[in-house]
Simulated scan of single mutants.
Amino acid sequence: MKTDPGRFFEDFRLGQTIRHATPRTVTGGDAALYTALYGPRFAVQSSDAFARAIGYPRSPLDDWLIFHMVFGKTVPDISLNALANLGYAEGRFHRPVYAGATLSTVSEVIGLKESSNRQTGVVYVRSVGSDEAGETVLSYCRWVLVRKRDPAAVIAGEHVPDLAEVVDPASLAGALPALDISAYDLALAGSPHRFSDYAIGERIDHVDGMTVEEAEHQIATRLYQNTAKVHFDALSARATRFGRRLIYGGHVISLARALSFNGLANAFALAGINAGRHVAPLFAGDTVHAWSEVLDRAETGRGDVGLLRLRTFATKDQPCGAHPGRVGAGYDPSVILDLDYWAFMPK
């Protein structure tokens, strides 16, 4: 058989290393389309002149665009037969990426756990995205619920990895070049608020909402060469419990990040992903809102920037003035994303 049906749960092995196909050169055209899809307005990623003024050689590509490109490479091998992408941990943005870079991804299977119903299992992988010079630009862990081809198949070597709850902020300071923050123009950046203006426990309603259309979430997923069937095949989706196509969870992440500009405009670069969970699905026609809480502040050992630990919740069809989030052991019914990450903020 020349075609590839994708891996099922019993096809994975602990310690297995997978080189993913199709290296991707990321261009200014990709960045323009990303902006058209989500509308991010962060000045460093929007303006070569602004970026150069503070020490970048030119404007870097959006961090989540890089994440999605690296993630998309993994889908045909890891999650083509997945039911759900369950979570993220130990994510690090190692260095800025600029238009013209060619990205490729390698994943290692670090955990396997069969579900009690024997119909599915959870696969844990650590994925590393590198540029054409072999330099790591991004690394992260994720775990995904994958169908079994044969429910009776015996699974050997099960293991649940012990992943850090929080990425050590001391390990993140080198992700940025040396910067001249004295040239950081707060008016052009869109906010007067610096690192010292944010307090632990502060909650920020990002106010605005974006409604997702069927065409745009499919364009976005194709942009990342993410081939997961649940996002495209309306015919097969009719047989699922939802009866329609699911929107790629990363689409929600990028919408929430774009919305966070209103309140966090100077959180100009991402540093690490502590944890992430797609709490509930999103569908075309739903409207996304978001809010963030400042969980922690950390020094970087450098005088130009500090790190804010942010927890961003995204909701569907629910403005976030009341900060809907965790409710007991679960979530408010409107919550679709719970994302915990570190972001750089000028001092």
Rank of each mutant, 00 (worst) to 15 (best):
P96R: 15
F313R: 08
T227N: 00
R52K: 15
E132M: 04
G121T: 06
G243T: 09
G263D: 11
D168G: 10
A298Y: 06
A220N: 11
D233K: 00
G243W: 06
D180V: 09
E108P: 03
R309P: 03
R7W: 05
G306F: 06
A101M: 07
G174I: 12
A228S: 05
S107D: 04
S107W: 00
R52V: 14
A21F: 02
A290F: 02
L223T: 06
A258F: 09
P57I: 12
I253H: 08
A152S: 15
G321D: 11
R13Q: 14
A164Y: 08
R326T: 07
I181A: 13
D332R: 03
T221S: 07
V154D: 01
K316A: 13
G29L: 06
V288A: 13
A290M: 07
L337G: 04
I18S: 00
F93M: 08
F71Q: 00
F12V: 04
A234W: 08
C141A: 13
I253L: 14
A239S: 13
S107P: 03
G87N: 03
A170F: 06
C320W: 09
V305S: 09
K347W: 07
P169D: 10
H159G: 02
V230F: 00
S334Q: 07
H217P: 06
S107K: 04
E108K: 14
Y38G: 02
A189W: 09
L37G: 01
E293Y: 10
L310D: 05
V122R: 01
V70L: 03
A173V: 10
T211Y: 08
T300A: 08
G134C: 13
R238N: 06
L33D: 08
P169T: 10
E202M: 14
G174F: 11
G29A: 08
R257N: 15
G330L: 09
H278C: 01
Q218D: 10
G321N: 08
A220Y: 13
P192G: 04
G328M: 07
A269I: 01
S116R: 15
S191R: 02
A237Q: 13
T102R: 14
F12W: 04
H217F: 13
Y341N: 07
G249M: 06
K2S: 14
E114N: 02
Y198P: 13
G121K: 03
L246T: 02
T211D: 10
S59N: 04
Y140M: 09
A239G: 08
E202P: 04
A269Q: 11
D30V: 10
D205S: 14
P5R: 05
A199P: 08
L295V: 02
F344T: 03
R149L: 12
G157C: 08
V167K: 00
E10M: 07
Q16H: 02
G303P: 06
S196A: 14
I253Q: 12
V305H: 14
A271P: 04
A21V: 05
V128Q: 09
P23Q: 09
P319F: 06
A156Q: 15
R92F: 03
V327S: 09
S130H: 12
